[in-house]
Design a protein around this nucleic acid. Structure first.
Lengths: 181, 181
DNA sequence: GGGTAGAGTGACTAGTCAGTCAAGTTGTCT
DNA sequence: AGACAACTTGACTGACTAGTCACTCTACCC
């Protein structure tokens, strides 16, 4: 990922959010301040651009998380992950939105989605251990993980902060069967 | 909504799911067994077709719910709504998927989304009363409602049934602060 | 029979857009 | 200075698509 690519991606993200993924590459190039040809020099196809954006936003999200520590999972660890994700999403709202847009519209290629999925393995492992030890509950790790992210995403889309956010966190703990301290 | 329109919508939904919303109207017309012109006779623009599909799927979902009764909200009522939504989504999986696709991709027009939103008012009212009486908890009715649907959608996408589904329901009850019987 | 209404048809148009390429620019090394 | 590579440019192309319209077909009525 070079400077040109970053520059084009930075221009493309707000455009995708404002005008939809169908915004022409020529418009993206213009807003990025480069020519049409340069855009296709940086990304061979529009699909490559979409995939690069999906990959970049996901990587930026994962990079926000500290490497998982091997301590027993509990309310405190969950709150820490909660805060990390929320902080990232609030600091880079466009990244967060476009990440979901690309995933939900099915326009991020299956290959890139699979490639990125692997990066969540270390975090899934933590959950797995907590699940096996009965610290958290749920029908499967995938479901638990999805429930966690879904609820945090709702906190974001509903603009919850302060006491509301704390209540939402408490609700999540109860969802997972983590006792209130 | 006449027969022609229903016929075109029925052809369009699987195409949108298989090939994306960008599938040409000419292909939709062909699969529906009508001419290009007839499609545009039934729907003035492609956007009108998208909106009609969104409206039709949402209406079909709301129609599955019995009119809300004025009984105290509780675990039983929640389970009933849970079952209704799950049954609908399992009976009409394409409708369920395309409904989310249109919403999440931002391709259902804001007008139609707002129009449909109003239909949820009676159900929101039930939640509102339960919320005011302390039967369920959460930072807002909108958040509570979204959490409920989000968790049921995850049950669907993870194909949970039987004991797994019951566990997921139990988790939802705990999210909302509804006691286990 | 003949006239009318209105839905249906599909070839066509006008426009769009992803992607190309020949020409131009910049930077580096000798 | 000159040779060369690497990058940039934007006009251009070909494929594609939403939407149109002049005409056809069918059903019904007088």
């Amino acid at each position: 990922m070079n400077e040109r690519q970053r520059q084009i991606i930075a221009a493309a993200i707000p455009l995708f959010l404002k005008e939809g993924i169908s915004v022409p590459t020529s418009r993206i190039a213009k807003v990025a301040g480069v020519s049409n040809g340069t855009l296709f020099n940086a990304f061979a196809t529009k699909q490559d651009l979409l995939d690069a954006i999906y990959r970049a936003t996901k990587l930026s999200m994962f990079a926000a998380f500290p490497p998982p520590e091997d301590v027993p999972f509990g309310r405190h660890q969950l709150r820490s992950s909660w805060d990390t994700y929320l902080t990232w999403a609030r600091a880079a709202p466009d990244d967060h939105k476009v990440m979901h847009l690309l995933k939900d519209s099915g326009l991020a290629s299956a290959e890139v989605q699979a490639e990125i999925e692997e990066l969540s393995a270390p975090h899934a492992y933590i959950l797995m251990k907590a699940w096996e030890q009965g610290t958290i509950r749920g029908p499967s790790i995938g479901f638990i993980s999805d429930v966690i992210f879904a609820q945090i995403d709702l906190v974001i889309s509903h603009n919850l902060t302060g006491a509301d956010e704390d209540l939402a966190f408490d609700m999540l703990c109860n969802t997972l069967g983590i006792d209130t301290p």
